[in-house]
Design a protein around this nucleic acid. Structure first.
Lengths: 145, 145
DNA sequence: ATAAATGCAAAGTCTTTGCAGGCAG
DNA sequence: CTGCCTGCAAAGACTTTGCATTTAT
């Protein structure tokens, strides 16, 4: 995963201004293991920035996603964000339905799945959902996806 | 894929009333290869049922999904529905980004992906996106996912 | 007959947009 | 100083809910 400094640098190098809010956002995502909803982000940021508005959160999430420092996933209960994985090597994720932490799967099934009838593959998704060790021992949150 | 009769029967056997609208819905989904948005469904149904309201479309889509006769996928541009595959054997899909037709992949990567540290697997997703033969020859629609 | 399905209207949720003032570079 | 960022307010897109009427069983 990118570090907070790498995120800031990457944003700066693409011409974005580095505000205190964006620095805090970078730190928040780096310190978070799982996915965050816009609301999660808003709630967290509100503690530090009174008068923060939702639209700024949305704007920044979208900009950071476009800059490539955040990844966005559409869960069944809405959009969620996390810091981009450093793209050293292609991989997939196991995602815990309890705490939403992710664990990398380095195995990629793509080479083994033969495309039918000249299907031109553009991208693929391989995601495994379940419960991590901790959440099995300590079940509390509902299934989310 | 289920037939229109099988859909109707399955709904009836679970206590739902079979209205003309639901019969038409069943037929629409059986006759459609790709995914339909609620709006697609509404537009189609409007032709036959003047005064149709959106909420009835939503209600029926949700009910049919809960009955297991429709499958729902969250695309990045919203929810879409299609008739359920008959569940004879577990499989995955290649989904065309042009026409949204799906092609089965019978290979399942799950047995090959080892779960880390006692991860208890609940479900998984393996989806391949690209362009089918026809849509490569005849590109027109934008990428949708 | 009676419980479910529908249409209508309204509300709810989530997200985006326009604008004026504020702040990073 | 200049243009990007922000907060505010409002609008927009999509989906759900409550209620009275209609309809399948």
């Amino acid at each position: 995963m990118l570090s907070a400094d790498e995120i800031i640098q990457k944003m700066s190098s693409q011409g974005l201004r580095i505000t205190d809010q964006r620095r805090t956002l970078a730190k928040l995502f780096v310190d978070t293991d799982g996915y965050l909803t816009p609301k999660d982000v808003y709630d967290f940021m509100c503690k530090k920035y009174t008068g923060l508005s939702f639209d700024t959160v949305y704007r920044n999430l979208r900009i950071m996603e476009e800059m490539g420092v955040l990844e966005q996933i559409v869960f069944e209960d809405g959009l969620k964000f996390r810091a981009s994985c450093s793209d050293e090597h292609h991989h997939h994720h196991m995602i815990c339905l309890g705490c939403e932490k992710t664990y990398p799967i380095h195995f990629c099934p793509m080479p083994l799945a033969d495309a039918p009838d000249h299907f031109q593959v553009v991208k693929h998704k391989f995601e495994v959902f379940g419960y991590c060790k901790d959440c099995q021992a300590n079940p509390k949150r509902q299934e989310q996806i």
